[in-house]
Amino acid sequence: MATEFFRSDAPGDVAIKMTPSDKGRLEVYLDGDKIFDRKEAGAFPDLSKVNELKMAIAEKLFELEEA
């Protein structure tokens, strides 16, 4: 999924942190906010969820993006 995010656009100065760990844990943080947690979601993200996360990143870019 990491390649999905970085290949999809240049996130600029938005911090995207993905924390894969043992036991299949995966957490995605965006500028300090947790936007996905596999444990809470109960599954790895499907394509629709990945799209949702991408749009959350894009929205963050709108808020931060310097012209």
């Binding site: 999905e4 999809s8 394509l47 990945v50 799209n51 749009m55 894009a58 929205e59 870019l61 709108f62 993006e65 012209a67």
Partner: peptide
């Protein structure tokens, strides 16, 4: 789409895309 920058007269906008899944 989320809009990141203003588009104005005189600009040229290129739109591209790639299959993600």
């Amino acid at each position: 789409l989320k809009f990141l920058r203003p588009v104005k007269a005189g600009d040229t906008i290129s739109v591209s895309g790639a299959v993600s899944g």
